[in-house]
């Protein structure tokens, strides 16, 4: 019993200590002026303001909307493409060079073109997120297809499955855990890309909120935005880990 409680409380110790130190060097010792490093109370006050006027909620929803739109677009392209590339060696040989060159380009490097092509707003951000997610999902899917257990493929063949059925009934389901891993990586990247994109070519979202708040020396709100992004990431991680526990056999 006591052991259980101990384990549950251990992860909480460090955050509490950090907040106490933070409080100590800001409100306690007053080492910094509040716009250089806002105190925990400043952050709570700013949070209250943006919660009450609804800005936090609308900007969070806006950011999540972009993340999902980009992720879904990337999945629609990357999952079928990954399955085909993993299955047909020639197709992979054909594409491998292009993929290898495009993949290391940081998604934010596409920001200038995204603004030129799509202007300011939701579209350019979705495009950046797409560029950021498409490659990890693609690579994980290709890898998953290649790791399909040969015995399962051969079993299906000796049970009378044709090539199409082998692909549909064996290769695709056995790739699902890898696709989920790819999505997990993709969503982390998507979150990063969204914030960067919003800071440059956008007029809404958490990134935009952070940047405008900073420009107005309202750094309390900046910290609120940062914490919300962290919490969103944590929530996604939790959901995907649960999904993986369910799928990994």
């Amino acid at each position: 019993m006591l052991e259980n409680y101990k384990n549950k409380f251990i992860p909480l110790i460090l955050p509490i200590v950090l907040i106490l130190i933070w409080h100590g060097i800001t409100d306690g010792l007053e080492l910094f002026s509040s716009y250089i490093l806002p105190s925990p109370m400043d952050v709570v006050n700013s949070a209250w303001v943006v919660i009450e006027n609804g800005k936090l909620l609308t900007n969070t929803i806006d950011t999540l909307y972009k993340v999902f739109a980009g992720l879904i677009c990337a999945s629609i392209v990357a999952i079928p493409a990954g399955i085909l590339l993993g299955w047909y060696k020639t197709l992979e040989d054909l594409c491998t060079f292009v993929i290898s060159v495009l993949r290391p380009i940081p998604p934010v490097a596409w920001i200038p073109f995204s603004i030129l092509w799509f202007g300011i707003g939701t579209f350019p951000a979705v495009f950046i997120i797409f560029m950021g997610c498409v490659f990890p999902i693609l690579v994980y899917t290709i890898d998953g297809v290649k790791r399909t257990d040969k015995v399962l493929v051969e079993s299906a063949q000796t049970l009378g499955a044709n090539d199409w059925n082998v692909l549909k009934r064996v290769v695709v389901p056995s790739t699902v855990p890898y696709i989920v891993s790819g999505l997990k990586v993709g969503i982390g990247i998507a979150l990063m890309c969204t914030i960067s994109a919003e800071m440059i070519g956008s007029s809404s979202g958490l990134g935009y909120m952070i940047l405008t708040a900073t420009n107005l020396f309202d750094t309390g709100t900046t910290v609120v935005g940062m914490i919300v992004i962290g919490l969103i990431g944590l929530a996604f991680d939790f959901v995907f880990s649960r999904a993986q526990d369910k799928i990994f056999w």
Binding site: V151, L152, E154, S155, T158, L159, V170, P173, S174, V176, W249
Partner: peptide, 12 residues
């Protein structure tokens, strides 16, 4: 039909 030495049931 082949019955393999390794387990060959579809895990999903």
């Amino acid at each position: 039909a082949v019955i393999f030495q390794q387990y060959s049931l579809f895990p999903w």
